[in-house]
Amino acid sequence: MNQIQPYVRSLADKYGRERECLLPILQEIVATEHVLSQDAMVEVARELNLSAAEVYGTASFYSFLNTEPYGKYVIRVCKSIVAEMKGKKEIVDKLCDILKIKVGETTPNGKFTLLETNDIGWSDQEPSMLINEKPYTYLTPEKIVQIIAEYQANGKSNNHQQIN
């Protein structure tokens, strides 16, 4: 028995064991564990009486349900055409520079994962990005330095006014 089992069971108790409860359960696992591990998917399959392949097949459809481990903070930079026009490249370059990783990678300390993602709904305020669920807009390389510094210092920057 692994440690994920009681956790998954508690989620199934919370959300239910119907097929329609699958996504909420997977979403919460990713939010807390930062990954859908093999063990977690097996436990979800067991609780919901699905095959493991069905759980994996469903999860892999959704970009936010990662089966590869991500860092504590997942940075998703918007790569829409408008973001590109407004300087996405400088933002990504700056992030790579500060975090010393490439897009798609996780920092060795497991704190940050850097990704590019499709339109996140802030085309009027590009360049933009999400750090976990939090949006940051009108980004500049200078702002990036500041934001990342805050995350590095004290985890989440709670009082930062991210939406302008």
Partner: peptide, 26 residues
């Protein structure tokens, strides 16, 4: 409230329903 998880096609109404039923958003 039900959350999506990063799939554009779920904006199509029947894909959205599939997704709400816990399936791939096809």
């Amino acid at each position: 409230l039900r959350m999506g998880s990063g799939a554009y096609v779920c904006g199509e109404e029947t894909a959205l329903i599939e997704s709400m039923e816990g399936k791939r958003g096809e």
